[in-house]
Design a protein around this nucleic acid. Structure first.
Lengths: 148, 148
DNA sequence: GACATCTAATTTACATGTAAACTAAAATAA
DNA sequence: TTATTTTAGTTTACATGTAAATTAGATGTC
């Protein structure tokens, strides 16, 4: 029997594992409502402002238009959203909540549930340190990779 | 006394964004060598200990056997690894590095490059706080979700 | 106005992740 | 021994992400 290999001190891996754990918590929370996390992200934008274009949803969600296009197909099939043409610019498409989509708007606070679990073992002082630290990390990465 | 920001930050989203940024840095680093991050994870296990079984790779990489099975198909096609039968247990399959796979072993330190960028704007004191804090966060999540 | 270029959205090809069904072999219970 | 259960790995169906090509419509320059 070979010995189990241990992990290397990689921040990337740690972030990855944490991110996946957070996604799992969210997916578990959403499962009874039969929507995915990706779908929740789109809905959470529309709950705040209905009738966004695909481009606007793309910017909000940090998803590529290609990914959104197909995601919206499924959400349309499930009766969560509808597409409508834009008069001023016929290339553009606006996305609207259906009644069914609107009816799930209480899920907008889902992230609080996730936060609650993620932060449950940290003191208030630690939480106050952690957020700015991670945000600075993000900023430095975005500067290096030239992304806004 | 300045007023607190009303915006409630989502730790899940922050972790997600950071994780994706870290993956992008890694993918950029690996692109010239024509391997993906998923493939690097498998190789990084084998560079440390060749001849691991699919189960062992699964445990090391936190990937499901199903995902690994197909990933190994592609890595085999690309000539990075080979499969071999196990005498003692004919259900089991051991994975071996090919010369080509072994030839990329200098990439084992890739995570340091990623760490360097991620941590570039944090002080030593902050780094010393950050790792344990995130590890505690991970631990509390794993307890709640019943995963080891 | 006509042509070149840019933009919005979609489509396609492919890599990757999950869950569930399947196969073969090992382990356990009867 | 024989039957049942567990385990290891694969396969399939599907959701999601990326990059690159495509289409249609808007914009800019001459």
């Amino acid at each position: 029997m070979t010995e189990k290999i241990s992990y290397l001190p990689s921040m990337g891996r740690l972030l990855n594992t944490l991110s996946e754990a957070a996604c799992s918590i969210a997916e578990d929370y959403l499962r009874p409502h039969e929507i995915s996390l990706a779908q929740w992200v789109v809905l959470s934008a529309l709950w705040r402002q209905d009738g966004l274009s695909v481009s606007e949803l793309s910017e909000y969600s940090s998803k590529k238009a290609a990914a959104l296009s197909r995601l919206l197909d499924r959400m349309e099939s499930k009766g969560l959203v509808s597409r409508s043409a834009v008069e001023d610019d016929k290339r553009s498409v606006k996305i609207h909540l259906t009644e069914k989509g609107q009816g799930l708007s209480h899920l907008i606070d889902m992230y609080r549930h996730v936060n609650g679990i993620l932060l449950s073992d940290l003191s208030d002082a630690e939480k106050e340190q952690l957020f700015p630290m991670l945000e600075r990390m993000l900023k430095s990465v975005q500067v290096k990779s030239g992304k806004s």
